[in-house]
Design a protein around this nucleic acid. Structure first.
Ligand code: MN
Ligand code: MN
Ligand code: MN
Ligand code: MN
Lengths: 225, 225
DNA sequence: AAAGATAATTAGGATACCCTAATTTAAGGA
DNA sequence: TCCTTAAATTAGGGTATCCTAATTATCTTT
């Protein structure tokens, strides 16, 4: 019975998912969204959330949702840091494909001691962003805020450069990679179909324009020219 | 319900511990030895062993012990391979201390997908031994046999070179590191005290001779001159 | 061969996560 | 205000892994 609470893999995934959801929708985070992200049932999430609340990692407001406590946020940022450092390693050192590293890093992130994290960061030259453009929290858990805007909010006709992709997921990353939509890519929003229709995006170097649903366009952030 | 049985961390540690014990004492491996190595109770081990037997990973002979099946051995070697590759990475690339990497690798070994393992091996130049001298199984699970002998069996007065240290453990590695007993070190067995007493070993570059208990001397392998 | 010591096994529980099937609550529209 | 619907919660289970306290088998030693 050690006083140092060992954060297990499950706990870490819950905390990480909560920060990720906070960047997508306004807090508090809904139980059902967490359930969807984690691929477990709502009752399971609720139960786990109660456990996390007891450990002072989250606050749960019944029928409203979940928020991270300061303690919880620190833990979550630490996981995010490890995740993104590993992604950099997998791409830069091991030369694994951009779209595949997210899942691999999701395993490694829970198996990395602090000393290893620090040494890994140094080995990589203290990078500031993951291969998908998202900022790597520093050792204290701080991130520099992004000025990029969701592609969804770009005015039609505007050209921009892809900055980062949030709420990372293998399927999404594969989809985007196949269309050349990686950080740094130059693009122009050609059109937005009405009635929640897709966005037509011209990607520099691609033959045809890409059609992106709104769900996706809300996750792709760009820097307008 | 996927047909591919996902080997969990616990299962992997059991399998790895069994191969490790097989190199120290003659098979089958005793339940109590496994319990000691894993830091769990004997009833827990027995229960788990039964689960492993159902999955065709081990054979259990009541009151005798456990042996790996071919399937089990392959899995175990895969874990050992990942473990030792990570150790190399942690020492060679991250420059972490020789004595500390074993524990870190013990976490990473369970979180490494096949594609990552392969890429890591390539990145490291397909090394053939871990920092503690033990052979890294190849992608198929084969290891080249060692011709080194236990220090315990060295004749008094014989000088030799340290080859590898088996049944790795943080405490042991620290102890040995502090005395300069790392692979490649030159040494001479000065004396063996009677009545299960310690071995006096002169280590090249060290002031005083080191006194090693027999437990330890059975785990340190050397190549006589 | 009987006793003692040691290891293995059985019995009975606990905890962390996860699930499905109700049931209840909250929120928005009629 | 009442109704509908979606989300949240409660009820009742399940599995993997671990534990302690008996009990039993095996091996050693007298
Ligand atoms: Mn993960
Ligand atoms: Mn990423
Ligand atoms: Mn391990
Ligand atoms: Mn090693």
């Amino acid at each position: 019975m050690s006083a140092i609470s060992i954060t297990g893999e499950s706990t870490e995934m819950y905390l990480k998912s909560i920060v990720e959801l906070e960047m997508l929708t306004a807090p508090p985070v809904a139980i059902s969204h967490l359930a969807q992200r984690l691929g477990v049932s709502s009752p399971s999430v609720l139960e786990m959330v109660k456990r996390l609340a007891v450990q002072n990692l989250v606050t749960h407001t019944p029928y409203k949702g979940v928020s991270l406590t300061e303690r919880g946020r620190r833990r979550a940022m630490a996981v995010l840091r490890r995740h993104r450092l590993w992604e950099r390693f997998l791409v830069d050192a091991l030369h694994l494909p951009w779209e595949t590293v997210h899942d691999y890093a999701c395993q490694l992130e829970h198996a990395t001691a602090p000393a290893v994290t620090d040494a890994l960061a140094a080995f990589l030259g203290n990078p500031t962003a993951c291969p998908h453009g998202n900022p790597i929290p520093d050792a204290v858990g701080d991130v520099q805020p992004s000025v990029a805007v969701p592609l969804l909010e770009l005015p039609v006709g505007q050209s921009a450069r892809l900055a980062h992709i949030i709420y990372e997921e293998a399927i999404l990353l594969e989809y985007l990679a196949r269309r050349g939509l990686v950080p740094g890519a130059r693009l122009m929003l050609e059109d937005i179909a009405p009635y929640q229709g897709p966005l037509m995006v011209r990607v520099d170097g691609s033959e045809h324009p890409a059609a992106l649903g709104r769900e996706i366009a809300a996750r792709v952030f760009v820097l307008p020219d």
